[in-house]
């Protein structure tokens, strides 16, 4: 427990400390993988439970899964377009579900009860590695989507509507993953920090509104990430009406 006599009790927060695992010569953050496996496990458990017996009149978890599917389908269809959304629905949907369950898991699961030798468990999305990995996947996805659908005509996108746009569009390819990853990372980490700091300062009642705000932010961030990913892919596969 935290002694109350501290001038700054949040010194106990362990931001930036990691549980290092060695794989060959590589170091990885063990706490991120542990919590991400829990997230993936929860997702798979839900999916397996809900799709074990699909019926025309849905019951139980199948309702939830169908609601999620239609929600994600609507996002993908709205931003990618009627023609290509089927290919990218699983990617967009996985991004949304993984980020959403990660964020909410980070906010709702009492990770503090599990003690690690170093660092602490939390939302996998509060680690910059995870968010950059997701953002780079989005970049790869929209390049692949554009190139596979339009071939080298994809690069016409860089000079449309005028060649003046070329440098801006090239810069955009770098800012897109940067903004995606830092937005998610910053929001989730800040939310965890605020909740932790408040919980240390005033342990009862007071952090609750901030926790609810955190849940709200978490959901919004998942939606924003998935929507922007869909929008970028839609932009890449979009055919100009010549």
């Amino acid at each position: 427990m935290v002694p109350l006599s501290f001038p700054l009790p949040f010194a106990e927060l362990e931001v930036g400390r990691h549980l290092y695992w060695q794989i060959g010569g590589l170091k990885i953050h063990g706490q991120v993988f542990l919590s991400s496996w829990l997230v993936i496990g929860a997702l798979l458990a839900l999916v397996v439970a809900g799709t074990r017996k699909l019926e025309r009149d849905p019951r139980g978890a199948q309702n939830l899964l169908e609601f999620l599917w239609e929600y994600l389908r609507d996002i993908a269809r709205e931003y990618i377009g009627e023609k290509a959304y089927r290919d990218w629905l699983p990617f967009i949907g996985t991004l949304f579900l993984f980020i959403f369950v990660s964020n909410w898991g980070g906010a709702l699961v009492p990770w503090k009860l599990i003690h690690l030798p170093s660092g602490e468990l939390g939302a996998p999305t509060a680690d910059i590695n995870t968010t950059i990995a997701l953002a780079l996947l989005v970049s790869l996805a929209y390049f692949y989507a554009g190139l596979s659908r339009k071939g080298f005509r994809y690069f016409e996108y860089y000079v449309e509507p005028t060649p003046i746009m070329l440098p801006f569009k090239i810069v955009e390819d770098f800012t897109k993953p940067l903004s995606l990853s830092f937005r998610l990372f910053g929001n989730i980490l800040a939310d965890e920090l605020v909740v932790a700091v408040l919980a240390f300062l005033v342990p009862l009642i007071v952090p609750l509104p901030v926790m609810f705000l955190g849940l709200f932010t978490s959901a919004i961030q998942a939606l924003i990430f998935a929507t922007l990913a869909a929008y970028y892919i839609g932009e890449a596969v979009h055919e100009e009406a010549h």
Binding site: V32, L54, L89, P90, T94, N129, T130
Partner: peptide, 29 residues
């Protein structure tokens, strides 16, 4: 602190995408 967590996480998410596609998106769709 960027390290091998990044590519491994990316691979993990790609694998998750394929698993969820097979278990969730295709059958439910």
């Amino acid at each position: 602190d960027l390290d091998a967590t990044l590519p491994l996480m990316a691979i993990q998410v790609v694998v998750l995408t394929f698993i969820l596609n097979a278990l969730f998106f295709r059958p439910v769709g």
